[in-house]
Amino acid sequence: MNFEAINESLPLYFGGTLTTLKLLVVSLVAGLAVALPLGVMRASPKAWLSRPAWCFTYVIRGTPMLVQLFLIYYGLAQFEWMRESIFWLWFKSAWFCAMLAFAVNTCAYTTEIIAGAIKATHAGELEAARSMGMSRRTVLWRILLPSALRRALPAYSNEAIMMLHGTSLASVVTLVDLTGAAREMNSRFYLPFEAFVTAGVFYLALTFILVGAFRAAENRWLIHLKPRQ
């Protein structure tokens, strides 16, 4: 192990960590915000609501994120009309393309997680709510979503961790995230082991924090479903 080279490259990795975190936070927040209504649509018994949501998740989950990223970053850039439209202001930036691809991706998976949790809601819970005279809307806001979102937490924590690792694709569109930093270091010193092990340690630390945060969230909001001791 060449610790000197690692030491020398640490600033690169800290910058990379920042990039990775930015990509992760923006895509998770945006993805979750859109996934909430989509998840409700997807779980709806009405076909005109659930089919479009199903279509979206099917297409996005059915194609690799790398392919989507290539399509958005290099694919769209191929078209003259795209490059002359006002959208190009955003699509020109690698940041925007990466965040869009990641947000759309996590959105599709989160939609399915939320829809699954909604469908798994105990029928008695809803019956009780209706018999109290709650309107559909109130049931949704007061009963269905709070209980479904709590139950979605464990699955969602998994999705967040997968997303953290998914952001490593950003380095193929010129962003210097953690993986990009490792590539950079490798190219400077020709030390792939040191370069990628360091990146791995950083990812581990980030995952550790994520896992801890979700455990705290589960202890707060999911305590009623904990097995009794």
Binding site: Y74, A77, Q78, R83, W88, K92, V172, T174, R183, E184
Partner: peptide, 18 residues
């Protein structure tokens, strides 16, 4: 300095105006 893995991608982004 923007770095790419493949030379082909460098030219693609030059055409794209990036």
């Amino acid at each position: 300095i923007v770095r790419y893995t493949k030379q082909d991608d460098v030219f693609l982004d030059l055409i794209a105006g990036r």
